[in-house]
Amino acid sequence: MSQKDFNPKILGFLCNWCCYAAADSAGVSRYQYPPNLRTIRVMCTGRLDPAFVLRGFAEGADAIFSGG
């Protein structure tokens, strides 16, 4: 697979108060970004148990994004 065709699956954990809010305002401002991210909202990235990250990789994520 060439670099160009690589279409990664990214799983993101977004803090409700900052990163999720930022993703909302990116939408309001119509910023365009690649559609590779699937998100899970948490009330704080402090909720992010390392086990979630491992499970994400096990489920086929190419990368885990933590936004807090």
């Binding site: 699956k9 899970i40 948490v42 148990d49 499970r55 489920e59």
Partner: peptide, 16 residues
């Protein structure tokens, strides 16, 4: 509202 069970279910559904 954010139990291990719920988040794990989301992660599993992400993979499915």
């Amino acid at each position: 509202g954010f139990t291990d069970e719920q988040i794990n279910a989301q992660i599993t559904a992400f993979g499915a």
